[in-house]
């Protein structure tokens, strides 16, 4: 018989982040974004609005992109978290470099994570699906053309 899970005060949680089990001390009201950054030193996910509007803090939860500013750390228990630090030398990252798909780089982690999820979940995505997914992230530096080329270079190889 399953029981009610309870987190009523600050306490220790175990999270699985980038394949590693990590222990963190959190309040139930703490956001996953803040815990990743402040406690685990995973600062790739960026706070850009803390309101779910910009996508700079996007991470993967069980392979799906989630804005970590809109998720409690306690919600992550039992799920696999992947941050941009969990990707290394992927074709997508290479494509972002070769296509000049970033300028200041602040939105880049979020874009890359979202693109990676898209390439995994919909490897044959058409333009409409790409557009639907990537609208979730804001970039103020580029005009988006380069980001589109980067994701297409990965999708079209599939």
């Amino acid at each position: 018989m399953l029981e009610t899970q309870k987190y009523v005060e600050t306490g220790l949680l175990e999270l699985v982040v980038n394949g590693e089990k990590r222990s963190v001390m959190v309040r139930p009201a703490d956001l996953l974004l803040d815990v990743l950054r402040d406690q685990l030193g995973l600062t790739g996910a960026k706070p850009g609005c803390k309101n779910g509007d910009c996508g700079a803090c996007t991470i993967l939860v069980d392979g799906w992109p989630i804005k970590s500013c809109l998720m409690l750390a306690v919600e992550a228990v039992g799920h696999e978290i992947t941050t941009v630090e969990g990707l290394n030398g992927t074709p997508l990252q290479q494509a972002f470099v070769s296509e000049f798909a970033f300028q200041c780089g602040y939105c880049t982690s979020g874009f890359i994570i979202n693109c990676q999820a898209l390439a995994n979940i919909h490897p044959q995505a058409d333009e409409a699906i790409i557009r639907e997914w990537l609208q979730s992230n804001l970039c103020r530096c580029t005009g988006y053309e380069e980001i589109g080329k980067a994701i297409l270079s990965v999708i079209s190889k599939n």
């Binding site: 009610t4 899970q5 009523v8 005060e9 139930p28 703490d30 803040d34 803390k50 409690l72």
Partner: peptide
């Protein structure tokens, strides 16, 4: 960041 705390429950039924 939420400037106050709350209790979190996740019931099974």
């Amino acid at each position: 960041m939420i400037p106050f705390n709350f209790e979190y429950y996740k019931p099974a039924t």
